[in-house]
Design a binder for these strands. Structure first.
Length: 332
DNA sequence: CCTTGGTA
DNA sequence: TACCAAGGG
């Protein structure tokens, strides 16, 4: 999907004054897989509970709010039934990676990539994340099903300006603008290699891309389905370029498949899921003041964070919210 | 990922 | 001030 879409590079400060709906699961997985020690171990508290995601939330969100952005986290609800196979497959891949990591450790070989691939987002981590976000004054939205669908819905309604996710699925769900690489330091390690490259935050605008490609959203969804989504495998040897060509040639998915004498199971239902997903208007997004005491108690007393570091971040957070409010006062 | 502290 | 390596929990 990425090959097809043009992105506009931005800077974090361009997000000032903007509301961003963050795809929570996507972001937490990112933190979980990347925030690790050199040997691959995630950050953990004294009782062995993983804390990488909490570190990621605290520092990245503080930076983002300091830059003047407004943020809401959108959490996944129940996965659609079509996703079962994909989820089972991912679980399988994870446990194989776990085994590989164990073996690498036993043999003293580098196992960072296996450690990353074994990242699992447990219930307690989700609860901890929500608890920290709430203490930081960041609104938490519970999606009925897919978080990206809910985030896209919020953007379509104009309650947020952007959806933040590394995936392109939010676009298929209709998000007008998706921001990727929403990090501040702008450095990322290349997979496998020990090299850092500059990674800029980038925005993809749905309408702009649709008119540039000369297609409608329904057709973009169909291209996605031909390449493969979270809900289906996609056709052999068909990537974004070929899929675009096929959809342009035949107009829609059914005719493109007919012409190639191929089928995709539940294709119509999957398309329906992207075009009209389960979402809710039962959410509130408003900035609250961070509760310094709660953040410190939780992170330092219960999760063994360094009080000095957390205190510093909290001070910055409080200042950011104060500045944000006074800027707002100027406008109204 | 992000912060910190050393180095030039 | 800019860059790097190491450590965070």
């Amino acid at each position: 999907m990425g090959d097809l879409l043009e992105r506009e590079n931005i800077e974090i400060k361009d997000l000032s004054g903007r509301w961003i709906a963050v795809d929570a699961f996507n972001t937490l997985y990112q933190f979980l897989s990347i925030i690790r020690q050199q040997d691959g171990t995630p950050l953990r508290d004294g009782s062995g509970r993983t804390t990488s995601h909490l570190s990621g939330i605290l520092y990245r969100m503080t930076n983002l709010l300091e830059a003047g952005a407004k943020v809401a986290f959108v959490f996944d609800g129940d996965p659609p039934s079509f996703k079962r196979e994909t989820l089972d497959q991912r679980a399988e891949t994870r446990s194989r990676a776990e085994e590989m990591w164990e073996r690498a450790k036993e043999e003293g070989l580098p196992g960072f990539k296996y450690a990353q691939a074994s990242s699992r987002l447990g219930e307690e981590m989700i609860a901890d994340s929500k608890r920290l976000l709430d203490a930081m004054g960041i609104p938490v939205v519970q999606a009925p099903s897919e978080g990206e669908a809910q985030a896209a819905f919020m953007a379509i309604r104009g309650d947020v300006d952007l959806v933040a996710s590394q995936d392109y699925d939010a676009l298929l769900f209709g998000a007008p603008k998706v921001v990727r690489n929403m990090a501040v330091t702008g450095k990322r390690k290349l997979p496998g290699k020990n090299v850092y490259v500059d990674v800029m935050p980038e925005v993809i605008s749905l309408d702009k891309e649709l008119s540039r490609l000369g297609i409608e959203r329904r057709q973009l969804v169909e291209i996605g389905i031909m390449c493969g989504t979270d809900y289906n495998e996609g056709l052999r040897r068909v990537g974004p370029k070929t899929a675009l060509k096929l959809i342009r040639e035949h107009g829609d998915l059914e005719r493109a498949l007919m012409a190639r004498c191929e089928t995709i199971e539940s294709a119509a239902e999957i398309r329906g899921l992207f075009l009209d997903p389960p979402v809710t208007d039962d959410y509130v997004i408003e900035t609250k003041k961070p509760d310094a005491e709660k953040i410190l108690r939780f992170l330092c007393d219960e999760r063994d964070f360094s009080p000095e570091r957390v205190d510093k971040a909290v001070k910055r957070l409080q200042e950011a919210v104060k500045v944000g409010q006074s800027t707002l006062d100027k406008w109204f």
